[in-house]
Nucleic acid binder design. Sequence first.
RNA 1: GCGGGGUUAGUGAAGCGGUCAAACACAGCAGACUGUAAAUCUGCCCUCUCCGAGUUCGUAGGUUCGAAUCCUACACCCCGCA
Length: 360
Amino acid sequence: MSQYFSADPSTIGARKGTLTTRAGKVLTPTFMPDGTRGAVKSLTPEQVISTGVQVVLANTFHLHLQPGEEVIHKLGGLHKFANRKAPILTDSGGFQVFSLAKIRKIAEEGVTFKDPRTGDTIFLSPEKSIQIQIRLGADMIVAFDDVVALDDIGRGRTQEAYERTHRWLERNVAEFKRLTKDMKPDDRPLLFGVAQGGLDKELRRRSLELVHASGVDGVAIGGLSVGETRAEMHDMLEYLATFYDPARPRFLLGVGDPADLRFAVEHGIDMLDCVLPTRNARHGTAWISGDQKVHLTNQKYADDAGPIDDSCDCATCAAGYSRGFLRHQFKVGEPLAGTLVSIHNIRYLERICEDYRNQL
RNA sequence: GCGGGGUUAGUGAAGCGGUCAAACACAGCAGACUGUAAAUCUGCCCUCUCCGAGUUCGUAGGUUCGAAUCCUACACCCCGCA
């Protein structure tokens, strides 16, 4: 068992574990909200902590563009910069290969992006991404991979993306070793390698083997929730469940719908991140008991005095903010509404994870 | 009182003889968002028995094959001069 992770010996199904990072221990399974630009949108770090969150993500691509890793380094590193002492994980920028597909060009060396804001040319490669992530000062970092959509068009590129992801994985690992060789084991960040392979089970299984063989600290599952159906995603998660290395943490990238999160945890996933709780919140939708979705902007809530969810212990529900109040704040465009519902939605996912940890 | 301008769907505002149930914006209603170019985007938004039909563009007449668009009268609003 790794010095950084311990979990139940069970290899299939939900499991409880402890991940040890240089910024503290993380109990798994755990949901990690995305703070892409250094902050979970609309929330203070204190509000994030109030939801039970243990790890917050930040994004390499976005922070590299603005304000730049040198500025953040100068300001004391990501923790000081973002006013967060607890663990921070940075994503590599690989997802932007997918989400910014219209303004990027992939080559073997790396990916060239056009900054959507300034038009500047941005270059990201495995080496560059690792350098930025380490410079930022994240406690857990992710290998730079090649992400394809799983819509009808993207599926044709699965094999190519799989192959490139693994050629790049070696470069990610080499650069990581180079930059961390002088760090003490307790002081170095943890590296997650990413498994790809689209909806091809053979590729997925081999991808997982390659990630395991690369010696990384954790295994990330990428390339899901990018256009495939829910059934296809679940099928793949179910398939992969038997092939994970029991000694390493498994991080499912980008999944955060409550039903999907449950399914993932029940199939051996330890960590998940997603923009859904905060984005949905800003757009006026909240999850309530039973994984139901509530559109708080609906007219029927205009005079509803009740909280978002009677059985919720989040700060928003506990304080008694009514659906009628929240609907009004949404209708008048007051950002407070998005903040209050973000707290609720993140808490909703954290509570699911806590329940699993308490049951196991 | 005289001269000029105006009156369009919930609001603002295009249209100025046919392709107009009428651009566009806002408001309203519903929905979508899964490693955040997302406080964004999509649909609906006169009525109905809603793949079609029926009533609209201050009111009432008129011209025309055909009018929100032209003419006449009236009503109301705005600006000048009295």
